[in-house]
Amino acid sequence: MKVPYYPGCTLKTKAKNFETSALAVAKKLGIELIELPRWNCCGTVYSLTDDDLIHHVAPIRNLIRVQEMNKNGLVENDHRLVTLCSMCFNTLKRSNIRVLENSDDLKKINDFMYLEEDYEGNVEVIHFLELIKDIGFEKIRENVTNPLEGLKIAPYYGCMLLRPKEVGIDDPEEPVIQAELLSALGAEVIDNPYKKVCCGSYQTIQDKQVVSNLAYDILMRAKDAGAEAITLSCPLCMFNLDSRQKEIKEEHPYFNEIPVFYFTQLMAIGFGLNEDSYGLDLNYVNPESLLLEKNLIRRNNAK
């Protein structure tokens, strides 16, 4: 199955491990994620004012590329667009909804982008977790050769995957999709109410203290509930919950660092794939000792 895939800027650099692990895992499941040709940055955030149209140009341009992929035969009659990054997912999906609900706005945007073909409104933006759910968690279970037994993981959703309601891939108050995935991988799922609390998002460039306070709360809640690691689906959440542990430690010297994974990294480990696909070197808090302790990776994985 070939599906159009939108990476987003950060997945090509600081979050390359998210992409690498996802592509490897998808391949194992018989899915080929075909990268959108000539994609542009989606803008990361959905523009919230009522009159602004220029900030919807970038997302819609990407949706036009999906149309082009279908016409060029890069994919066959698949108008879905899969994303990995939660923020890209939210922005693309919301802009899509916006123009589909306002045909005047769509016309203006199409007129503005007169060098592109018109967006016809047929693209469906989905998140990789939705694709996995469609395939079925049974299929996931079948592909697990290295079950994540003994690993206590707290899934973290953040905001963009769940809110607002018309965009969310799961219930905004009690999401379960990552829990189902992690159970299928053999891990022990630790639930905690802060799984849906925002990590602070872009506040990280304005005031890192604010973000590290929030991150501390989120991580401590997970730890108090018994978690040994966190999984998530967004490079910004990763930065705020993983890299910012540096700031947390400066403020709370007795804080024990806790590893944070992209859910696809754990899938790759669970599927017993080649360690090149795990990309653990890009995780700030080194998860190797935890994984070694649980016998999930071999010793010669160490750098």
Binding site: I54, V57, A58, L115
Partner: peptide, 10 residues
């Protein structure tokens, strides 16, 4: 800050 408006290309 780029919004991919394509004005530069034009």
């Amino acid at each position: 800050r780029c919004v991919s408006c394509n004005t530069c290309t034009k």
